[in-house]
Amino acid sequence: MIENRPLTTFVSHSVLIIGVTLIVFPIWIMFVAATHDALRLTQVPLPLLPGDQLWANLQTLFQGKEFGIPIHLSVFNSLIMALMISVGKISISVLAAFAIVYFDFRFRMFFFWMIFITLMLPVEVRILPTYEVVAHFNMLDSYWGLSIPLIASATATFMFRQTFLTIPDELMEASRIDGASPMRFFVDVVLPMSRTNIAALFVILFIYGWNQYLWPLLITTDPDMYTAVMSIKQMLESGESEPQWQLIMLTALIAMLPPVLVVVFMQKVFVKGLTDSEK
């Protein structure tokens, strides 16, 4: 701080606290709703403080009778999908970036541009033909179908390319003199030196994968393959009567917990990765 003005600092804090409260308020209400029973949630005004029905609601979700899939199974599906997408994206991108930065080969630039244009085609835009391709390969209702079409990523490839370009050339030469083959160099030097980037990218991609909605909605028809995030929509639409808000909110709470935990606990590396990669 340049000058010491207790009043301005106090005002700053107050405004920030109000602002942050507003931002977090919806999440608080979600938690509160998840702890009441159905009856309480039909009485206006709705509660602002938690009730005691959390455990009961949780049990209902674990049985999963009403919505096709028990919550722990949909969370498991989400986990598999998010891991396959994040690990898959990181693996194929890091290999491709290594080839493009460290090898001179025919069609290098052609491949580079081919990867580049995928940056421009979000899945929402080419959803229908992609669906047809996945159907053609019999990958509907499978983990492969959920993840593979989403794992080619130009962004990750670019980020790794950027990182590799900052590794001094001499390290590669020193490793050649030490007798390391290209893949040895990759494993022993390039990967360890990219640790931070890999971790940051993992956070971003895990959230990206976990939060996928339209894609799983389209390609899963078997309730056993539903993911936690997409099952929300099923719950909103199920039944003629008013939706079961206490269950919906609890599902939402559970479905947002893993990415929130990842982002909060890996905050430092995530913030660094996010602000670095986009620049």
Binding site: V20, I23, V24, I27, I207, W210, N211, Y213, V229, M230, I232, K233, A252, A255, M256, P259, V260, V262, V263, V264, Q267, F270, V271
Partner: peptide, 14 residues
Amino acid sequence: RTLLIIPYAVAPVL
């Protein structure tokens, strides 16, 4: 910061 980054992790549909 910790509180403000939470919405980032929430899926759009949620």
